[in-house]
Design a protein around this nucleic acid. Structure first.
Lengths: 213, 213
DNA sequence: ATTACAATACTCCATAGGGAGTATTTTTAA
DNA sequence: TTAAAAATACTCCCTATGGAGTATTGTAAT
């Protein structure tokens, strides 16, 4: 667009350097955008945000030390003006919904191409809620989608899920977490219930599908 | 390196345009490499390969219309000189092993950074089997070379292992195979014994590592 | 035809897992 | 500062699983 416009400050948060490099390559010739920060960990990004002011955040959902959905809420609580676009491999409807509920201005799949990304950025700047092509299709075909939504797990549940996935028995888990085996049993039951199955193996398979393990 | 060297022809096959852009950004200032093709679908890549000659293929494992592991084998059968590096988010041992068994020259995680990627490329050119940092940590190199001492399974056992991995209960398996649940139990016990574990989850994890599932 | 091994099916026993509740304390968010 | 959610721990009951045997029939290779 115009040449003398003040560039919008963009921050990229993604644990995949290749994706960061990809965004840089997509944006590098674009006069409207200036990348002022890139982070692989939520913590680094959050620290950066305590001192810097930015316009646009490209925010991965799955980070090694945090969750993009929560980070989005924090950012928006601090400043509603900041444009937050979720980026992820995950095309689960519930995740997209959660992001949008937390105030995100849009959601891009990593399968989006340059044009898709740039038009989403422009749309978000223009105040639209933007979704990349495949996500749009996902929402159009709403009726065909599976009803099972991505379960919200608590910290403890995730912890126990992880140990179950390693093949640990309830007793071992109880010992390593210093809690009663009966408590482990409760968490396990909650997990099975949240994933709507009665099989540990299915539970773990689904958790892997959702990228929880 | 040297300036007048003939550049190595690189092809990128990945369904994520951002990853392709990322590789382009990482390689763009490197005098040794020249990107001669980029593909989002296996089919397009395979068509390209019928007419073109390349030196290095950066090959994603998960493609919308194919499997990088199979594609790797095809490529290597046609020309062993071509360097194939698997790239993927998946850090499962069995997948890496399958790639290397099919002749891949290495395996990079998408969490690898530029330096990691470039040093892997150089290593592969120098004839090494290269793995990105995180993958190296997952394995010790010695483990890769020695033949696997995974248990010999009978046809029926493999069949039942498969069904167990799908989360089926003994009773369901018995019904679908028209045998007694007690027989299923025997096979299951044999499997657990052969894999030297008392946990179904561990059994299935090991089976996946060995590429049996 | 003999010898393996596979596949089948059973016994008995002990423990782990799954289903459905209730209840208290602690943490976190509104 | 409350109200909600998470984490803790328990009850009872029943079924599934795991471990250790034994035994018969089927099948494939020598």
């Amino acid at each position: 667009m115009s040449d003398n416009k003040i560039k919008r400050k963009v921050v990229i948060v993604d644990d995949h350097p290749l994706v960061i490099e990809g965004f840089k390559n997509v944006l590098k010739d674009h006069l409207d955008f200036q990348i002022v920060g890139q982070f692989r960990k939520a913590e680094d990004f959050q620290h950066f945000m305590t001192t810097e002011v930015v316009d646009i955040i490209l925010l991965d959902i799955t980070l090694p030390d945090g969750n993009g959905i929560h980070i989005c809420r924090e950012v928006k609580q601090a400043n509603l003006e900041i444009i937050v676009l979720g980026i992820s491999n995950l095309s689960e409807r519930s995740i997209v919904k959660q992001m949008l509920h937390n105030g995100a201005n849009g959601y891009l799949l990593k399968t989006a191409d340059s044009n898709d990304i740039l038009s989403c950025l422009q749309g978000a700047i223009d105040g639209e809620i933007v979704l990349s092509q495949e996500i749009k299709e996902l929402f159009d075909m709403a009726d065909l989608r599976k009803p099972e939504d991505f379960p919200e797990l608590t910290k403890r549940e995730k912890q126990i899920l992880q140990l179950l996935a390693e093949g640990k028995k309830s007793l071992e888990i109880a010992e390593s977490l210093f809690i009663s085996p009966l408590t482990v049993k409760t968490h396990r039951a909650t997990l099975l219930q949240k994933f709507q199955t009665g099989s540990l193996v299915i539970l773990i398979n689904k958790a892997k599908e959702y990228g929880l393990l």
